[in-house]
């Protein structure tokens, strides 16, 4: 089977639009996920703009705090729930620090959506296995909600999510909702538990092997820190998944988001323009595993 990943052709841009000018958006809600991760609900100030806007799960955008700068994050809400948009940020540097200081009512710059998306059409009628680690659940949850809102056209759904410790679990409200949802097989694991943790303890790859989803008519979609991805891919291979049955997203430093500023390439592939969503088969066909 072949999962095709589509490419962005910049169609969303209207003639005469200046691609670098962000929309000014309003923060509607701030959720503290962990001690260094926050999720922001935000919305257009202008109803017309809001009505014109569309995106697909997996796409990203450039977010800015005016006066501090821009940074790249995926849109972590689902296109099936366009009441507002969401993004999640780990505090690691100057811009993310400034974003973390934002409060309800504050404004951000937003330009996008950019990049390609998860292949919604070609995963129809298939079993889906989502494997997410840490903040890597952000792009996956966009797709998961998208899929759950059209539950009938997919077969079995497995979600495996892991974090370093119970305190590092993000999107707990989602985890709970999926756990309660009998249309989903939900597994949560932590690398290290604590006194109050009664759930599963173990690294994602061995837990995945233990769950042992069948590769038959299945697509696995995984996202997380590089080291987790590396071993998850190995586990999926062990379970019999072929390279084109595995979809992941890649992360590189970006600035423009539109294939011009020159830093996010792996060989001739520009992650911002050609990605960030790739099948494992595609990644293996890159010119080199090196940068």
């Amino acid at each position: 089977m072949m999962v095709a990943v589509e490419k962005d052709k910049g169609d969303s841009l209207m003639e005469g639009d200046n691609v670098y000018i962000p929309h000014v958006m309003k923060i509607e809600k701030v959720i503290e996920e962990t001690q260094n991760i926050k999720t922001f609900h935000f919305n257009f100030k202008d109803e017309t703009q809001k009505a014109q806007f569309g995106f697909k799960s997996g796409q990203f955008a450039e977010y800015s705090v005016f006066g501090v700068g821009e940074a790249t994050f995926c849109i972590s809400s689902s296109p099936t729930r366009m009441d507002h948009l969401e993004f999640s940020v780990m505090r690691v540097g100057k811009v993310t620090q400034a974003i973390h200081e934002l409060q309800e009512g504050d404004e951000i710059g937003f330009r996008g959506p950019y990049g390609n998306w998860f292949p919604l059409d070609s995963i129809q009628g298939k079993n889906l296995v989502f494997v997410g680690g840490g903040i890597g659940l952000a792009p996956l949850r966009s797709l998961i909600w998208n899929v759950l809102d059209n539950r009938d056209i997919y077969k079995d759904i497995v979600i495996l999510y892991g974090a370093r410790s119970p305190a590092d679990l993000s999107f707990k409200y989602d985890l709970e909702a999926w756990d309660k949802d009998d249309r989903v097989n939900m597994y949560t694991t932590v690398d290290r538990g604590d006194e109050s943790w009664t759930g599963r303890v173990g690294l994602i790859p061995p837990v995945l092997e233990e769950i042992g989803p069948s590769p038959e008519n299945t697509v696995a979609i995984t996202c997380g820190p590089p080291i987790m991805i590396k071993f998850t891919l190995q586990s999926l291979e062990k379970l019999g998944f072929t390279h084109d049955q595995i979809i992941t997203t890649l992360e590189m430093r970006m600035k423009c988001g539109i294939g011009k500023c020159g830093r996010c390439n792996i060989g001739n592939i520009y992650v911002c323009k050609d990605g960030p969503v790739f099948t494992y088969a595609q990644i293996r066909s890159f010119l080199s595993a090196e940068f």
């Binding site: 006066g67 700068g69 423009c256 020159g262």
Partner: peptide, 17 residues
């Protein structure tokens, strides 16, 4: 060579990208 960076410059409530 055409690579670039994008930065903000800020003075109080106004600035430039």
């Amino acid at each position: 060579c055409h690579c670039f960076d994008i930065n903000d410059e800020n003075r109080k409530k106004e600035g430039k990208r």
